[in-house]
Amino acid sequence: MSNAPQYDIDVAAFWADPYPDLARMRREAPIAFVPQLGSTVFTRRDDIFTQEKRIDVFSSHQPNGLMNTLMGHNMMRKDGEAHMNERAAMFPAVSPRTVRASWLTRFQAHADRILEELAPRGTADLVKAFALPLSAECLKDITGLTNMRFADMDAWSQAMIDGIANYNGNKQVEARCHAATAGIDAAIDDMIPVLTKHPDSSILSVLLAAGQPIDSVRANVKLAISGGQNEPRDAISGATWALLTHPEQLSLVRDGRAQWIDAFEEYARWIAPIGMSPRRVAKPWSYGGVDFEPEDRGFFMFGSANRDEACFAEPDRFDITRDTGKSIAFGAGPHYCAGAFASRAMVADVALPSLFARLQGLRLDRAEPVRIGGWAFRGLLTLKVAWDGS
């Protein structure tokens, strides 16, 4: 165990709102051991930015980690050449060129269809009625698992991210995760002969064409689902909520003084959908006055880094005009999110402009307060809104 100063948290309160504890840690113990999480956490942006790149010390290879145990050994839990080989095999499915050429028109078609069905209702929970199905339908195309229902894509993604954040060892959470991965394996098995005969630009297709071992194919498709559903889903609903609660910011976009991508990037900084990345200490190391021992576990708290007062003025304020260049919402080192460009396109190029254009007079339903939660993964649980009809 590292000799970092100990910082205790109330787990339920931390799940509801981690930012007060994270701010206090940045001030008083920027590298702290949190016994309730069984990990030494890094909370300052510059510490995370530099140490995440030290894969010789803070390794992503975690043979006994929750992600490996529950989802298989994917590229996020590999370092060096092993990581880069699998990343290169997947890249053709999520490259900027492929997103523009293959996915953007499909994203837009999904958004238009969902909004056309939604518009006459005049009221909805946008998390369930728009953000969830749009993210899932887009992810079905990207992964190649078009044989899944969008509801299963979301449920299985949520079960996996709950599983890999299950540091308290809840057996029911673990069981749901196993059921989800079994469902995904069955969907992959169904689609392999289809995509072998009719290859396309999807992740499953390009991994098969690259000759990747089937265990790696399965693990990396599950990786794409675990992050590729909740991150854009939570960014769509969260950025919508942020703009509705900051009408002066929304006006900047509508008047052409800011862009939808500015709203997306600022939301991802303000409330990072992926708030933490775990690492295994690979060798003795000293940093920031803390001595680390092999097999210690460390958490890089992206959600804290993006509210670091040393890098962002008034970091708790949502401001789409700020410079988000130091944000590490998608990571900082060699494990920078491979799907970042697809996520930006889905949210900023399609979801936000389509939503505000189609649902005129979009506003919060004040009768049902917004609920938000999570620290490893954080997002809105509900977003009840109303608009002026079709």
Rank of each mutant, 00 (worst) to 15 (best):
P353G: 02
E314Q: 12
F318W: 14
P353V: 01
A348Y: 10
A340L: 04
I328A: 06
A272N: 14
G288R: 02
S354V: 00
S286N: 08
F341W: 14
G288F: 12
A305G: 15
R280H: 10
A272R: 08
D316H: 12
F292D: 09
E293K: 02
A305S: 09
F299V: 00
V290Y: 11
E295A: 02
M276H: 13
A345I: 00
V290M: 10
P334G: 03
A305P: 08
N306W: 08
P294L: 02
S286P: 06
A342Y: 12
K283D: 13
G339C: 05
P284I: 01
R307T: 05
P284H: 04
E314N: 13
F330H: 15
S286F: 09
C311I: 00
R307V: 03
E293L: 02
R297D: 09
D349G: 02
D349V: 00
E295L: 06
E293G: 02
V350G: 10
E314S: 13
A338H: 03
I274C: 02
S304Q: 09
D316Q: 14
A272P: 15
A348Q: 05
P315I: 03
F318G: 06
L352G: 08
K283I: 02
E309H: 10
E309G: 15
M276T: 03
R279Q: 09
G298D: 07
S327N: 13
A351R: 03
P334W: 05
V281A: 08
G333L: 09
R317S: 13
L355Y: 13
D308P: 10
A351T: 03
P334I: 04
F300Y: 04
I271L: 14
I274P: 01
P334E: 07
A310N: 14
G331T: 02
D291Y: 07
D319M: 07
R344C: 03
P278V: 04
A351E: 10
G303T: 05
Y336Q: 04
A310I: 00
G325W: 07
I274L: 13
I320P: 15
F299C: 01
F330W: 15
M346P: 05
F300M: 08
S286D: 13
